[in-house]
Design a protein around this nucleic acid. Sequence first.
DNA 1: TCTGGGGTCCTAGGACCC
DNA 2: TCTGGGGTCCTAGGACCC
Length: 362
Amino acid sequence: MAARAFPFVLHLDLDQFIAAVEVLRHPELAGREVVVGGRGDPSERAVVSTASYEARERGVHSGMPLRVAARKAPDAVFLPVDGPHYLAASEEVFATVRDLGLVVEVLGWDEGFVGGDTDDPESLARRIQAAVLERTRLHCSLGVGDNRVRAKIATDFGKPRGVYRLTAENWAGVMGHRPTIALWGVGSRVSARLDKHGIGTVDELAAADPEVLVAEFGPRMGAWYGALGRGEGSAEVDDAPWVARGHSRETTYQQNLTTTETIADAVRVLTAQVLQDVHREGRPVQRVGLKIRYAPFFTVNRSRKLPAPTSEPEAVQAAVQALLADHLEEGREVRLLGVRAEMTMPDEDGDEVGRTPVRGRV
DNA sequence: TCTGGGGTCCTAGGACCC
DNA sequence: TCTGGGGTCCTAGGACCC
């Protein structure tokens, strides 16, 4: 239906997106060390969302606590995260690509797949870069692949402002000797488990005994990791609009919460925010979740299916408060609270089976 | 160093039913 | 009386990504 396979898949990734957008509205910051994260106050509990290339040269990277970033880059400019502004910039980028008549599948603020129905994907990539730059003043890099996995991995080799092609032809030559963690979908935990079996490189993963992988990771993920090692994957690009399964809000408090009443109030506030997000979707809530991170850093998640899907704010509030009452360990200081609501899907109980899981799509 | 926020998907184990 | 095996639902936890 909306998903189509292409001879080439292009992966577009905006260069230092958030920092670049901030520089556009604060031109005096061009060339400076810019760090975007939290509320822009490096003394607070928060982490880096994006650092400009200048700040990265000082060792600042996303995920790093702002306090640490401030120590590494004392002269950097710290800015608060402004999600709505980045979303607007992102939408303009992808509208630009769609206006070229291309099929686009958005993956996040700063990246997406583009269908490459051409035998000269590099020219197409350069056309996309020029159009995006002209309309949004933002630079991007493009990966060209014969499927999604290879396109996604290719992009990093093109950065910044470049184009790089990764296909069955050069896959083993480019990726074979690299550690498995270089693959999209392999993180530190999985690469460590692979190491246990003597699988350290992409080549070794590609040649690994399927039975070993299935025994370690299960039938679905085992097969998926083997295929990943060989760079295999779908060449489909799906331009169907994204439909969220749920929404969540969580907050790390600058000072730990200590009393049951304070905690219950904070959960009420978070639930109200989630309800606003859910209300915009117009679908009922069928499951609620509560996340509690006790000091210093121990996290539990509890969830409960509602007796029936509901759009009543009071019913959702009551369900979340009940979860809290059942599970909060009193007397322990709370560092973070989070509330999540999962909605029914639009075609649930309809005749459609649902989308193929992204990670399982081989 | 002291660890954000918003998502998705997979797996495993227990409950329950036949 | 005790036992099996399969299927589904629910919940918790893990892992990954941006």
